Amino acid sequence: MTTKPDRFARWLPIAASLLLLAGCQAAKYRTLESFGIEKRDILGSRVEAARDAQDDAREQFSSALEQFRATVEFDGGDLEDLYDRLDREYTRSVDDAERVRDRIDSIRDVAEDLFDEWEDELDAYENANLRDRSAELLRDTRSRYGRMIVAMQRAEATMDPVLEAFEDQVLFLKHNLNARAIAALRSELDGIEDDTEALVEAMNASIAEADAFIQSLEGSS
């Protein structure tokens, strides 16, 4: 017997292609629902994607910090190569941060639509007990979602100070690529380490909330 996640994975490439032809959000949902993929499934999938994007970003920011440490500890070698490596790490960090932001935005979009639809459908119940149970589940899901999205937004905000600091270092070295300029950056290391540590901790908390939310969706299916 094919499970819902299996069915979702199986039809997703086809559905994704059809989505290119769908002009509005409602049309996109109707297309996916025709394959048995409900908004709840879409939300779960997007939370997983955001969790994975945050995991990648956490690793990338840590890698960028290591490269900055290597830069300020420069003790001979090719300065141009050193700068290029730091610039690549910064660029990758920007890309990963943007991916995290996009994933979080996509979660908010489908969550709002799901909860609005769920709320509206409560009025369609004839059985009061079932309506009350559904309303209770809606409140619980909203509460769990609220905790998760707050954690994600907090983690998202911690990326900005780190990105700004790395951008400053890259720009400074771009026009001052010499040993003296590198030595001048050493005083910035402690601040960047603190900001990156705060980012990693926020990402860890956000990823844990995402995992808990995914489990709650699966447990109430």
Rank of each mutant, 00 (worst) to 15 (best):
T2I: 14
T3N: 03
R7K: 13
F8R: 00
F8K: 00
W11N: 12
L12P: 00
L12C: 02
L12F: 04
S17A: 14
L18H: 07
L18A: 13
L19H: 09
A22H: 02
G23N: 15
C24W: 08
C24M: 03
C24T: 10
C24F: 06
A27E: 06
K28P: 08
R30E: 05
R30G: 06
T31V: 14
T31N: 01
T31F: 01
L32C: 11
G36Y: 03
R40M: 06
D41G: 03
I42T: 13
E48I: 07
D55Y: 10
A57R: 10
E59A: 14
F61W: 10
S62M: 05
S63Q: 09
S63D: 14
A64C: 03
A64K: 11
L65Q: 01
L65P: 00
L65S: 00
Q67E: 07
R69E: 07
R69L: 05
A70I: 11
T71S: 04
E73D: 09
E73F: 06
G77L: 03
L79M: 00
D81V: 15
D81I: 12
D81W: 13
L82T: 15
Y83Q: 03
L86G: 10
D87Y: 01
D87I: 02
E89C: 13
E89G: 09
T91E: 11
R92K: 08
V94M: 02
A97Q: 07
A97Y: 05
A97S: 14
R101V: 14
D102W: 15
I104E: 00
S106L: 12
S106I: 10
R108S: 15
V110S: 09
E112H: 15
E119V: 09
E126Y: 10
N127H: 04
N127C: 08
L130N: 15
R133W: 01
R133A: 11
R133F: 01
S134A: 15
R139H: 02
D140E: 13
R142F: 01
R142I: 05
S143I: 04
Y145E: 01
G146H: 08
M148S: 04
V150K: 14
A151M: 04
Q153C: 05
D160E: 11
P161K: 01
E164I: 04
A165P: 02
F166V: 09
Q169T: 06
L177E: 00
R180Y: 02
I182S: 00
I182K: 00
A184W: 07
A184H: 09
L185Y: 08
R186T: 05
R186W: 02
S187L: 02
D190V: 07
G191R: 15
E193L: 03
D195N: 13
D195S: 11
A198F: 11
L199G: 03
V200P: 00
E201T: 14
S206H: 10
D211A: 11
A212K: 02
F213H: 10
I214V: 15
I214H: 12
Q215H: 10
S216V: 08
L217C: 10
E218G: 08
S221Y: 12
